[in-house]
Design a protein around this nucleic acid. Structure first.
Lengths: 219, 219
DNA sequence: CAGGTAAGGTAATGTACCGTACCAGTCAAG
DNA sequence: CTTGACTGGTACGGTACATTACCTTACCTG
């Protein structure tokens, strides 16, 4: 009834992907507990047997959805080690990628739904954190550690500083998007936000006697 | 059966408070959709009529809980205008308060539950944001604007910078606490985090030719 | 102390939904 | 064409839950 065009058979992979896509729409909008298997299956037609055959039960579908969404969204972070340009450019590139990831619909949905379910799915919450924000911060800390060892920056605890920068990039804007109070930023907005965050991270806000950074317009 | 000592009547205020406390335990742990009125009433004894008489329905109880929790947790932000000491001390004091608020069990619970329900309760989400993170950022922007007008700092967009600082203070640690991956920080930890975030915000991480801030040990 | 009112308790109503069973139609192989 | 595995559609068992109807009890007023 919903999509009569889909009455034919489907290769297993496509079916699995279709289920996950529909599950994303429903779970990420309504949350795990308020979502029904029926609502998911309505979007793609077919019967619930497909879901139960493929994922076992509702929990299995949810964990698969969270895991795969987080994995695919976060894959962009580990493509290569950042080229050995200067720290400012490395951080800018890192920030751009992280911002794009955080604002992607998939990850917004993951955030929205995993907060409430974290206590019910502790391993899932840990996996999400470790592969996502935790790893981002870890990678960043490595970069900072290198720069520190070259004497380029002064910083006591690189892990803490990395957390701070990640937090800056995920500031109130991210929260507003998750809460549905505003749409994700345009590329230009995102770029400006990344630039201003990185600029503050590198130079702070005191206007005293610091040298301007090479070719950076602060916001 | 649960608490037989409570078989007598109760002043309305106490009962209302008891309901909200029990609702906080249940809603903040399980989320709105997965929580049942029965589970709430079991914690305090009595019957569901108490809840329906006082709050109308489940939605009414939830919105009252979120609103009052956010209000009381965030009241500490608007007590007085910060004394006109130097910017560093003002920000430190601001950061301490904000950190304490963010890590309070009440606000952790609000965060946990409102993310998923934001799309179902848009006005509630907006009220929460405006009274909470939005106002924190707004107050901070005022402080920065003053310092800017005194020529103390150099900054283009004070609102953006304020968002960044608020984000720094609410970084991966906050996320880990919400996800239940670690307990809230001890006062000493919190103080160290605030200090390092503010230090970066003020001075950045470049170790060049900046003067050290007055009496600040960065972390 | 009697009687009334409103709150508190109990049980019922109706619904939603997870997970499974059943049947009929469909595709692929032989 | 026949067979058989699989799938779509639907219905069902069992349960949980929001909300309400109805009864019971406590408190207040005169």
């Amino acid at each position: 009834m919903a999509t009569p065009a889909r009455s034919k058979r489907m290769p297993q992979e496509d079916r699995r992907a279709a289920i996950l896509e529909a599950a994303a729409q429903v779970f990420f909008e309504q949350g795990y507990a308020a979502s029904s298997i029926d609502a998911i299956i309505e979007r793609i037609g077919g019967s619930k047997r497909n879901i139960y055959n493929e994922f076992g039960n509702k929990e299995g579908l949810f964990t698969a959805l969270i895991t795969e969404s987080a994995d695919s969204a976060l894959a962009a972070l580990s493509v290569e080690r950042f080229a050995g340009r200067n720290l400012s450019e490395i951080l800018l590139e890192f920030g751009r990628r992280l911002m794009a990831i955080y604002m992607s619909p998939a990850l917004i949905g993951v955030y929205r739904s995993i907060m409430t379910e974290a206590l019910r799915f502790p391993e899932l919450a840990k996996a999400f954190y470790d592969k996502g924000p935790g790893r981002a911060s870890g990678r960043l800390a490595e970069v900072l550690e290198e720069a520190k060892s070259r004497g380029e920056i002064q910083i006591d605890d690189c892990n803490k500083a990395a957390d701070h920068l990640v937090g800056m990039l995920r500031d109130n804007l991210h929260l507003q998007v998750i809460l549905g109070l505003r749409p994700p930023p345009s590329p230009a907005e995102a770029e400006a936000l990344v630039a201003s965050a990185i600029s503050i991270f590198l130079h702070g806000i005191y206007g005293g006697d610091r040298r301007p950074a090479p070719k950076e317009r602060a916001q």
